[in-house]
Design a binder for these strands. Structure first.
Lengths: 338, 338
DNA sequence: TCATTGAATGACAGCGCTGTCAATCAGTGA
DNA sequence: TCACTGATTGACAGCGCTGTCATTCAATGA
């Protein structure tokens, strides 16, 4: 089935010959141009089917036809956040017959640059990227690439072309204000590999700013240099409470995975929520909201970010005006854990 | 930045001219061929850099060069399973400088066929697919495409070219035997949109077979025609226990998301695990293992499936022998919920 | 000294398709 | 009848690169 030497795939030329028309007419027919007669169309389609013709888009794109590939660069697929974004992207792209070509940067600017170069060399129709500290080269390539480029997730910095996301700093700030208004005063933080995840850093930054506004500061802080996970959150809270810092009344986690781990730790050691300890996360994941006591968190609209980014690319390709900045916002969820 | 008309990208010809060599030599230099002199190499690299040259792989692939794109077709990105697989794939591919080109079939054979046609038209180096009931056309295209094709997830059926996965039927069967050995007798099932997810169906099938071996049958069964989620599992268990079936002593869930929902329901209504009710899932997700009481489940090696599939493609491309079937197996986790 | 060898480079053709512009032709009104 | 219009179709060139074979040239040994 795959050992026999292939008898060369039929080309457009053969389809055209069989249908008794020229190559270009066959091309137009198969691409659904509306200038060909219904009869011609049918002849060509029949010829294509009977020969098992499979279009070669490499040749098409090289000859100046449009591409239906969109480069997508994400820092990770480890937690559900980026798959959610990817899902939104894919959804919207697929409706338009486009495909994401994926690259994972692992939060590394060098790898990111490599990926950009690599993906651009396929001359995609557009590029969507969740940046991880782009290098100068990266910016130059993107700026000169003459295709729609959408930077996603964060809108706290000025984009090369377009940006779709939310203010992570703003989300942290809003959460701090909300919690202070609810009467909490002794805050602690449990975070994951924060050096690499600059969005988590931005949230913490905003959160701290909120505390400062009220003349407060953190009473404790644990940061674990590992990717975020439920298990890590559980471990992190355990460490925090075992340390000699003042007992916090609320722990802000770097995200929901971590926060759910915190909740599980409380369940396991019999700390009652939210009386003895309150917990807040970030992301608004299904899992947090399905806990016996729903998690206090900030819902990020991840799929919507993906969808909107895809929409921006598609709009630009069809010549429409596109906003430079799109804020999809966030929604504070006042759950039962605070 | 994107309004000005682009002054046409420099081509290999210009790089070659600038370096004072022929096109083909420049091509070889930039592709890292070992036949060019170090001096030539440097001249060409300098010329390329100073011109901001960006390789055009469309032309390269069309001219007979290799592609570094691998088509990937998955049925969904909604729960963590397929992102995990994708992560494994991406990891391995990226190390070899390859990129997945993604398509989501939504468990629909027609869409799947469309995707296959579309992705193949880019002449990728290989194709990895988690099949959703392939059509006759799909099979024909793949069989005739003359590239490595890996069918992933399930190995219960005969593959077109290669298969990497585990026996879902076997996993269901093993779990049934394990639970029966532990003394459980009154089994019920809570599942999600099973018509579309034939792997969940295979597990249920195996599980039922295991019960039959022991002369047992299900005492209750709830199947909800929605994508699986924690919330759905919670709802499903609630429905099951509210129905008039005999009270089960163990509920088998279609996967861990659902099972965790079941655990949360028990917590919320005060059913103690595993005395009053036992629960088992499938997948071995982090979340289930981080519960105060770790979930009894079967760990599927999702990332490994992706890695192995990628490895198969790469091996085949480098001319090595590849196994037709790779069983990555599964691991039964006897947790505290049973 | 001369044929021989191997390393480095180059000329050429063509991958399969589509944009551009030109040609064809039936139908129309003067 | 004839120029004119619009709807179809076609000829041509070339997108940018790489495989194949040929060429060049210095180094080698007889």
């Amino acid at each position: 089935m795959n050992k026999e030497k292939s008898p060369r795939k039929p080309t457009l030329f053969e389809v055209a010959a069989r249908a008794g028309v020229s190559e270009i007419t066959a091309s137009r027919a198969l691409r659904g141009s509306n200038v060909v007669t219904p009869e011609t169309l049918q002849k060509v389609q029949e010829a294509a089917t009977s020969l098992g013709y499979l279009r070669n888009r490499l040749a098409g794109a090289l000859a100046g036809g449009p591409s239906n590939q969109v480069g997508v660069i994400l820092p990770s697929l480890s937690n559900i956040v980026f798959p959610d974004v990817l899902k939104g992207l894919e959804d919207r792209l697929e409706h338009a017959g486009f495909h994401p070509v994926l690259g994972i940067s692992n939060y590394d600017p060098e790898q990111e640059e490599q990926l950009i170069r690599n993906l651009l060399s396929w001359r995609p129709a557009g590029l969507v990227i969740a940046p991880s500290g782009m290098t100068e080269n990266s910016r130059t390539m993107l700026a000169g690439a003459d295709l729609p480029v959408v930077e996603i997730m964060d809108i706290d910095t000025d984009p090369i072309d377009m940006a779709v996301g939310m203010s992570h700093r703003g989300a942290g700030l809003a959460m701090a204000r909300h919690l202070i208004a609810r009467g909490y005063r002794r805050f602690a933080y449990v975070g994951h590999d924060i050096a690499r995840d600059n969005r988590a850093t931005a949230r913490l930054d905003g959160f701290t700013a909120g505390l400062n506004e009220a003349g407060l500061k953190m009473v404790g802080c644990v940061t674990l240099v590992e990717p975020s996970s439920v298990a890590l959150g559980r471990r992190g809270l355990n460490m925090l409470l075992g340390s000699d810092c003042a007992r916090p009344d609320l722990v802000y986690f770097s995200n929901d995975d971590m926060a759910v781990g915190g909740v599980f730790h409380c369940m396991a050691v019999g700390i009652s929520l939210p009386d003895q300890l309150a917990i807040a996360g970030f992301n608004g994941l299904d899992i947090g909201q399905s806990l016996p006591t729903p998690l206090t968190t900030t819902a990020s609209h991840r799929a919507r970010i993906g969808e909107t980014a895809a929409a921006c690319v598609l709009k630009r390709l069809s010549g429409e005006e596109t906003p430079r900045m799109t804020d999809v916002g966030f929604t504070l969820i006042a759950g039962g854990t605070s």
